[in-house]
């Protein structure tokens, strides 16, 4: 057999080995995306038995609905603040624990604990933590005399989004911290030594050596956390369910509610399509911009 001579470039083997993966992806990821694209021009019910063609009307109606505009405004606030705060807190955490000190590996493990906790559990912990009467947050703030009365952090329309963002930052910054810890370790120590010889201060060290040295890992981490944040379902669902007054509803929770609670499948499909297109466009622009800088 001449198989041996050809070594590793057997196309048949490649196709056979990757077939299960490709089939799975097509049937359960990309097929459904196409399905949503087509079904977004219809109004239909969950079983798909009743279908009514709506064409572009459905989209027009959706864009005219102030509710939809609110959801996407929320999405921008949610994604922007969670992602950038995860970046800042993650970087801060990585810089803080990235040195040798007493029990440093214990502390390193401790700061990624929230990231390992299941999302539902994290959300439930914070529901208790924010609880108007039983929550430690109110109790602590009152004890140091910052608050005079109990605050229902998740119940006040003005506070709920901020409170939810804090939970998502707490839950997710550990991933960024892990990435940046690895990034810090990949910067050659000689650069800092050379910097020390030249007498650079802490800030110069950070902006001229540390940040550029981690540029690539920061770019990728920001993209990943940004997309994950936009797509993050259970924090909002468990914390507030989208309330109060839809102030914390984001596209993913709204898509779910439309489809499985309100049986408004068409609107759900349209929202799904808009979300996917939006994420796609932002991701492409982001990649273009960050690659140009090099």
């Amino acid at each position: 057999m001449n198989k041996k001579k050809k070594g590793y470039d057997s196309p048949l083997l490649g196709i056979v080995f990757t077939a299960p993966t490709i089939i799975l992806m097509i049937v359960l990821l990309f097929g459904p995306m196409v399905y949503q694209g087509i079904m977004s021009f219809y109004d239909y019910n969950l079983t798909g038995l009743k279908m009514e063609f709506t064409g572009a009307d459905g989209y027009i109606k959706l864009f005219r609905d102030p509710g939809t505009i609110q959801i996407f405004k929320n999405a921008v606030v949610w994604t922007f603040f969670v992602t950038s705060l995860q970046f800042l807190v993650g970087l801060w955490a990585a810089l803080t624990v990235n040195r040798k000190f007493f029990a440093h590996s214990f502390f390193k493990a401790l700061i990624i604990v929230p990231w390992i906790i299941p999302g539902t559990v994290a959300a439930m912990i914070w529901r208790l933590f924010y609880n108007a009467q039983l929550g430690f947050l109110n109790a602590a703030l009152q004890r140091i005399n910052v608050l005079e009365r109990y605050v229902d952090w998740l119940g006040e329309p003005q506070l709920a989004m901020g409170a939810s963002i804090l939970v998502a930052v707490w839950k997710g910054f550990g991933f960024s911290a892990l990435m940046y810890m690895a990034g810090l370790q990949s910067i050659p120590q000689e650069l800092y030594e050379a910097g020390a010889v030249d007498g650079v201060n802490v800030f110069q060290k950070f902006f001229y050596i540390t940040l550029p040295g981690m540029a690539d890992i920061i770019k990728t981490t920001l993209l990943l956390t940004g997309i994950w944040t936009f797509n993050y379902f259970e924090i909002i669902y468990v914390l507030t369910g989208g309330g109060p007054l839809n102030k914390t509803h984001i596209p993913v929770t709204y898509i779910y509610e439309m489809a499985f609670k309100n049986a408004n499948m068409g609107a759900s499909s349209r929202l799904a399509v808009i979300s996917m297109v939006l994420v796609g466009i932002v991701a492409v622009i982001y990649l273009k911009l960050t690659n140009k800088e090099r």
Binding site: P32, M33, Q36, N231, F233, I255, A259, L271, A272
Partner: peptide
């Protein structure tokens, strides 16, 4: 991919 977006199909 946003899993919520493809949850119905």
């Amino acid at each position: 991919i946003c899993l919520a977006a493809i949850s119905v199909p």
